[in-house]
Design a protein around this nucleic acid. Structure first.
Lengths: 338, 338
DNA sequence: TTGTAGGCGTTATCAG
DNA sequence: CTGATAACGCCTACAA
């Protein structure tokens, strides 16, 4: 691979001049610029971005840490971040944390050691204190889908409590009183907040929270099926099921149909996130929209504004979830023991 | 951020010694090793991997280029690659090509310029010649889901032609004669191969290929709905619909139900890829399994073997698709004009 | 506008 | 086993 040195020799100019035409950051006469360009083309020269990064301590790349690489949620998020950053000529280095503290930390270390100009994190296992500490370092850190009060300026988050409330409220407004709830892993903040919203809606409507109609799932399809199975076995009646995300909702839908339910007549189901497939379940899933893609864009914009001097960008730190009404929730016509 | 130099000063040893304990590649007396370790801990030292990479021209990271970051297909693929590599202590740098030639090339340039030890590509727009040329360079290149004959040793691919054949054959075996086909973008090799398999199955069963029952979709949900709409408008009868991927199949299912079809009675539908949500459509989607996750693992194993000296790994270059029978295809009982 | 030279944080080759 | 010291490829004052 050709180096800047060889280019300079071939073009008969100095290293510095070549560097200047590469970075377009200083005036170079058009004539010498052409000479250099020709030499670069001839040698098939490509700047070594590692060396650039070491010398300038900038890398034009931002690190992203997500829990998983698969799944609609993270896919949308990464796509949003990448689209925005790429349009600005920045690159994205993605790594994963798998919701495990050690792996999250290791991923962060990696991104920092790669000289990322900024880092966008979707972490779930690591503590607030750790993050606060991390932000004292020299690499700018941003948090997606997680609100740490001390770091609110660096957070792009969703009001999950409100989302949880909206879901339950909408169910109640459809006349449901016996409502089962499948939550996500409780160490995840989103899970907890959504549950809190659920409880608030219950309380405001004078419906008591029932432990037997509560199940902790895993945010995956199996969480939905396991949860529904659990509720059915408990023999407690219920006319509606709230799932803390769409994956679990679709697992529940599939399980319900396999076990003789006619949907939505026998059971109303609502999800959360509005992943792409939510409109392809049957019945089409009523859910809470989580604008992850937009949030990804926004996180990227925040980086552009703070770390790449694009000052004319306005930032929204907090996003609001909205109810998406489709076909999986209907008016409760059965009388149900309360 | 502390440097190796500060560590060496604090531990009262030379740079070289510190480097040795970091890399564990040369003998260092236990006593000095401890001194260094203590100093590193005290300073919170982290090696700068950019500098390491520049000096050693190795980076312990492998580049991955996919078309999109979202979508089940790429998610599974990336997850497979990452899991395998991470377990081996390697890191993954992911970037996208969006199926556009320029962006694919730019992504490749980026990965090369980042000193990746190897690069795994899922490219669709770039030509075979370009890839063959690329492989002459010093960065090892591997191809996912694409077979370039001259580069077969570096490819991990699926027999898409066989998959296309299997899908159509299974439909025919269920008594369908009038079969509509929604293909993917024809510049993509998978698309073309799947279509070729489809045509072979038709030919072997003496069914003629009909242009009016053929539609080029976009591999997304809209491709399925647009395609089905097109067929319905054409007034030509058909009892089965083959979609070249599951996204389009679920789009078609949703569209069909919205337009009065009872599934699968009025129309049998088969997909391709067996993405996670395929089992959550209604009816559950019969499809062709595409083991992308395993292929991701295998691609990673290939780089471990070839570029990280893990010789005891055996490699499978070609994967075979299999038929997954669920509920969306049934025996054709209607007589259909042929 | 252009060139010179020092430095970015490590690795790796020699001696000792 | 340990220590100098020259790369690695590029950026960036500072000079010219």
């Amino acid at each position: 691979m050709a180096t800047i040195y060889e280019v300079s020799k071939l073009a008969d100019v100095s290293l510095a001049t070549v560097s200047r035409v590469i970075n377009k950051n200083a005036r170079v006469s058009e004539k010498t610029r052409q000479k250099v360009l020709v030499a670069m083309a001839e040698l098939g020269y490509r700047p070594n971005s590692i060396a650039q990064s070491l010398a300038s301590s900038r890398s034009n790349s931002v690190g992203v840490l997500v829990s998983e690489l698969h799944g609609s949620f993270f896919g949308q998020m990464m796509a949003g971040i990448e689209a925005e950053l790429r349009a600005a000529g920045k690159h994205v280095i993605i790594t994963t944390g798998h919701s495990e503290e050690e792996k999250e930390k290791e991923g962060i270390e990696f991104l920092i050691s790669r000289n990322c100009d900024a880092i966008i994190l979707h972490v779930e296992a690591v503590s607030d204190e750790y993050l606060i500490d991390l932000c004292k370092g020299s690499t700018p850190i941003y948090l997606m889908s997680r609100l740490v009060n001390e770091l609110s300026e660096n957070c792009i988050s969703l009001d999950n409590e409100l989302g949880g409330f909206l879901a339950t409220q909408s169910i109640i407004e459809q006349g449901h009183l016996a409502i089962a709830y499948i939550t996500g892993p409780q160490f995840k903040a989103d899970s907890k907040d959504r549950l809190a919203g659920h409880k608030r809606a219950l309380a405001e409507n004078n419906i008591s929270f029932s432990d037997t109609l509560y199940f902790e799932g895993d945010f995956k399809e199996t969480g939905g099926s396991d949860g529904l199975k659990h509720f059915i076995k408990s023999k407690k009646e219920f006319s509606a099921l709230i799932c803390a995300n769409d994956e679990m909702a679709s697992g529940a839908i599939t399980y319900a149909r396999e076990h003789g339910f006619t949907l939505p007549n026998d059971l109303s189901i609502i999800g959360f996130d509005n992943i792409i497939f939510a409109r392809h379940t049957f019945p089409k899933l009523t859910t809470i929209d989580n604008p992850v893609n937009s949030m990804g864009h926004m996180a990227a914009k925040l980086v552009l504004k703070n770390n790449y001097q694009q000052n004319d960008i306005s930032i929204t730190h907090s996003f609001e979830p909205t109810l998406i009404t489709r076909d999986s929730v209907i008016l409760n016509t059965n009388r149900v023991k309360k």
